[in-house]
Each structure stands twice: as structure tokens, then as C-alpha cells.
Computed example of a mutant assay.
Amino acid sequence: MKAAVCHQGEFSVEDRPVPTPGPGQVLLRVVRAGICGSDLHARQHADELAALGTDLGYEAIMRPEQHIVLGHEFLGELVSYGTKTRRKWKPGTRIVALPMVKHGDEIHMTGFDQDAPGAFAEYVVVQEAFAFEVPKGVPDELAAFTEPLAVAWHAVRRGEVGRRPAIVIGCGPIGLAIILMLKAAGVKTIVASDFSAARRELARQCGATVVVDPREQSPWTAYKQPGPVGSITELADFGLTAVGRMRAVPLLPWGHLLRAGDRLGAAPSGPVVFECVGVPGVMDQIFAAAPVRSRIVGVGVCMEPDRMRTVLALNKEIELRFVFAYDPEEFAHALHLIASGKVDPTPLHTGTVGLGELSQAFSDLGDPERHAKILVDPTAR
């Protein structure tokens, strides 16, 4: 089979044996594979990725001197089964799967491990237990977005936005996917901020209700903030006025009323902010500018050391959460949202290339005015 192999940061198309599915595994013929921001990082920062993998206890993570087949977002057609499989699908069934395989007692991350070659190739092996059939009628180009939309759905779930406004900082592929999922979750106010005019337009298409160029308008003032959460002094003035009025009423159990309001969610709170840039300094900028009691969800992958003034977050009582990947139910739900038409990732798809064009595609993705998401068709010549 043909496969695009990354070695020392460079791609070459090589002939490789078609992989053989092991116990509990199935072999897929790759129909489409998406280029993820993580692939861009892996190509450029393989040394840092290897060190990170060691810290996380994943010793098999790729290294620059190895020959790696990237690609962990994919759609394929079932070809054959390994042993100890249920064999519930017929050959030719379209499948999406979580990018993870098990060899013996070891877990390997598909597309980031020389023992788990990814989908920038004509064939890929997946675990049957983590594979899902794509419903009939779902176009290939949409089904191929299941994995990145699962990432976005997990981030939105962990963000627990509820009735709060949502602010998306950075409208690259993951930021756009989060906007799609916020809209699907019924969030009423979605503010999107990006320097790129092209990506701001994509954010509108994905469902953002307010879109700003941060050079011209602050995302923090582009919507109506609910309650006294703009600053520490504003919140303090609100508290002083409210408590003063309650204590002026004899025998009023003002303390119990405050606690009851807090339990019922009536306490002032800021927006839920999704940081989707992953560049040093951005998180600190959010700490400085975000309203009081905001919740920040770190989604962007930052491969470099970062510096943050935590005293800003402390004084504002900012809550910080980080997210990674998804679980199988979230993956299946993302596929359901695509199949039902509730989520349409079409705006994200800005190009399709063959294996031989992969290196140029990686370079092209560095220009936000040209591309959001490029898919790979291994059959294209």
C-alpha cells in the first residue's frame, strides 16, 4: 500500500505492506483522513512531544528519528477482521473509529506511534470495540469530521456553559468545531474572536452570534454581560448594595438568602471562555481581560512553556479547566449529530489532497486566510 511517512519532519510516499488486523481489530481501507492541528505540532515538535509522552507515561510516542504514518481523524471501508471479533459488519461498510489500538497489553495511539500507523495511508487498523458504522446517506466528507467534532463536543460538555455566554478565542478548526457544538447545545450567546477575516466568516457560518476582530473590538465588551461581573469593583459594589438593603430589614435572614441564591445558581458569574489558540501568552491575556468568575476551558495545544500571572485568576476567582480528546460515547454522539443534520461541518472543509500533496497541505494550513481543514484522499493521484 501507499503511505505518507514522516521522518525528521519531512514527508515521503512509500510502499508498505498492508497491515494485518490482530485480535479484536479490523482493517479499513481509508476513504478520507483529516489533517489535525496535532499533526502539525507532531511534525514540528516531535522532540517536545516525546518528552511530554515520557512525562505522561506513554513511552511509545513518536520521535523525530522514527518513520511515522500520521493521521488519526479518518473514515474507512471495512476490509477484513482479525481474530476474536464479532464480525457484525459486511465488507464495504463505512466505519469511523477512535484512534487507539491494543497490541497485547499495550495501548498505542494511532498516528502518533510507529506501532500504530495512522490514516495518511491506503489502509489502517482499528479496534472493533471502538469502531462505529456510518449511517447511510451521510457524505464521506462529513463523516470524516467525526473525530474532531468529538473533541469539540467533549470540550463543550466539560465547559458546562448552561445559560452563560460562551466566548471562543481563536477560530481555527477546533474553535470552529466548538462553535458548531455550542450551537447544537443550544447556547444563545456565542462570541467568536479571531484576527483572520476568513475565519471570522467561517465562525459566522458555524453559528457564532457575535464575531469580532480583536484589533478593532474586544470580545469582552461585544456582548451584554449578565450581572455585575465586569470587574472586582463592580462585583464588590453590587455586594455592598445588596447586603446593605437586606440587613436594613429587621430579622431578615440575609446570610441564609445569600447561600440559597448561590446554591440555586443566582450568584454572579462570568462567561465560559474556550481558549483555542495554543500560543504562549494567550492564556495570560485572557486572565487579564476576562470578567470576574469566568470559566476558562483550555483547548488549544501549546507545545512550548507558558507564563501566566495566576494572581490575576486568583483575584477574579477564575476557574480553569483543560480538556483532552473524548470518550467513546461522546465520539458516537458526534457521529449522531452529523448524521441527524443537527451539526453540519461543511464550512470547515476547505480542501482535499492526495498523499503526495501532504507536505504542501501542511504548509498551506499555516495561512488562516486560505484554509481551515484539509482532508486527505489516499486514492487521489
Rank of each mutant, 00 (worst) to 15 (best):
I169T: 01
I169P: 08
I169Q: 13
I169K: 09
I169W: 06
G170F: 13
G170V: 05
G170N: 07
G170Q: 00
G170Y: 09
G170L: 10
C171Y: 03
C171P: 02
C171A: 15
C171T: 14
C171Q: 14
G172L: 04
G172Y: 00
G172D: 10
G172R: 06
P173D: 05
P173E: 12
P173I: 05
P173A: 15
P173G: 01
P173S: 15
P173W: 01
I174V: 15
G175R: 08
G175P: 07
G175S: 04
G175F: 01
L176S: 13
L176V: 13
L176G: 06
L176A: 12
L176W: 06
A177I: 00
A177Y: 11
A177W: 04
A177F: 06
A177V: 07
A177H: 07
I178K: 00
I178G: 03
I178A: 04
I178W: 01
I178R: 00
I178S: 01
I179N: 08
I179T: 13
I179M: 09
I179Y: 07
L180G: 03
L180V: 02
M181A: 11
M181L: 15
M181V: 02
M181G: 12
M181I: 05
M181W: 04
L182V: 11
L182D: 04
L182S: 04
L182K: 10
L182R: 13
K183H: 00
K183D: 00
K183G: 04
K183I: 02
K183W: 00
K183L: 02
A184G: 08
A184N: 12
A184I: 09
A184H: 11
A184L: 10
A185Y: 01
A185G: 02
A185I: 00
A185Q: 11
A185P: 09
A185S: 14
G186S: 10
G186R: 01
V187F: 03
V187G: 05
V187P: 04
V187R: 03
T189N: 08
T189R: 14
T189V: 15
T189C: 14
T189K: 14
I190N: 02
I190E: 11
I190H: 12
I190G: 10
I190C: 12
I190R: 01
I190K: 07
V191K: 02
V191L: 03
A192H: 09
A192L: 06
A192I: 12
A192R: 09
A192M: 14
S193V: 10
S193D: 12
S193Y: 09
S193N: 03
S193K: 07
D194N: 14
D194R: 04
D194K: 04
D194G: 10
D194W: 08
D194E: 13
D194S: 14
F195A: 11
F195C: 09
F195H: 14
F195E: 05
F195S: 08
F195G: 03
S196N: 01
S196D: 04
S196I: 05
A197G: 13
A197W: 01
A197H: 12
A197I: 07
A197T: 15
A197C: 06
A198S: 15
A198F: 15
R199C: 02
R199S: 03
R199T: 02
